[in-house]
Simulated assay, not measured.
Amino acid sequence: MTYWNNFDVDAAKLKEYFHSHKTVKEFQAHSSKVHSVGWSCDGRRLASCSFDKSVATFTLDKDRLFKENTYKGHNGSVDQLCWHKSNPDLLSTASGDKSVKIWDVRHQKCSNTILTKGENINITWSPDGNTIAVGNKEDLITFIDVRTLLPFNEVQFNFEVNEMTWNNSSDLFFLTNGLGYVYVLSFPDLNQRHIVKAHPGTCICIEFAPSGRYFAVGSADASVSLWDLKNLACIQTYNRLDWPVRAISFSHDGKLLASGSEDLYVDIADVTTGEKITDIPIEAATFTVAWHPKEYLLAFACDDKDQFDRKRDSGNLKLFGISSD
């Protein structure tokens, strides 16, 4: 298959690596459920956000996370976060309090707050750094110019809008919907370019590979599909999970794809063949996963309960890929 000429993947070596790097470490982050995790572009920091209205940042030292700061300022659940694609000090968050906040982690403060029209549930930052898109519960997407800190466009959809993202050149905007489609819009004019019937069930999450040549879509039909951007052709599927796929992430080299769901493991697949490289046994549903931008370290969070109080969320982060030696 010509798609994989540049990958040079050795599945056996990856399996061997994770046989000795299968340890998971857990770190206290929040007092309630963790909704989203993400690495800064340089990999020095991991951020998380939570139902407890807070945002936390951690610094990475070898195989340990050290809490750097907890940010408070949102008045509602913080549902999703995203980092600037090239500035490792800027982080944005979307909250049910009808606001977007931009945090300057170097100075440990909120640098800007942008008010929006609804309860926000997802957010993405364009690769060129100029635009933030935020979606709310009413399927309204608001586009914010980061240079002026003002919304410059809004699009109201008449169907369920889930995750959204840009391609690497920031001239195409992608969103997944509840009818199993991926919509492709030109940017910034937001004209409809393509509608791709990707899955028979709801399309939940979407992510581009680091190369920008491929993107993956996770669905309520418990599968993940891989698409070639140039031809909008499906070139691979991953079908080991039994529950809706809620979160996906490509490794830094594009060789691995992690998928999280309500299954009691996180699946890690060989992108080229779909073969299982390893999995991570867990005890609760997983709704957020994020590979480190330079290493085979996977951050994720589960819907865990406190070990001493089963009615209370644990609020913990997990880090996988640590040597068992």
Rank of each mutant, 00 (worst) to 15 (best):
D279M: 12
P188C: 14
V146N: 06
H21P: 12
D309A: 15
K109N: 10
N316W: 00
Y17M: 07
L150V: 02
F51D: 10
V182K: 09
G180Q: 13
Q307R: 15
L65S: 03
I204M: 12
F159K: 13
F51V: 09
E138Y: 13
T176R: 10
E207T: 11
C41N: 04
L90C: 10
D128Y: 06
V78C: 10
S261R: 06
T278H: 10
S324Y: 02
T57L: 07
F18W: 04
D263I: 14
A299D: 04
E295V: 06
V245Y: 03
D42E: 11
H74G: 02
V105T: 04
L185I: 05
L179P: 08
G180K: 15
D52T: 01
D42M: 13
T142F: 04
L241K: 06
V134C: 05
F174V: 03
E275W: 12
S31V: 05
P210S: 06
C110G: 04
Q28M: 08
A269N: 13
F18Y: 02
V155R: 14
G178M: 13
A222T: 03
K98L: 10
N177K: 12
T272A: 15
A12P: 14
K13A: 12
F51K: 15
T273M: 14
S92H: 04
W103E: 00
S249H: 06
W39G: 03
T57P: 03
T124R: 09
F51Y: 07
S31W: 02
A94Y: 04
E26S: 13
F250C: 08
H199F: 08
Y238G: 14
S225A: 09
F174C: 07
A209I: 06
D309H: 14
F51M: 14
K230R: 14
S86A: 09
T93F: 03
C234S: 07
A220Q: 08
S32G: 14
L65E: 01
F208T: 00
S324M: 11
C234T: 01
K109M: 12
L149D: 00
S225M: 08
G118S: 14
N112S: 14
S92M: 10
T124F: 02
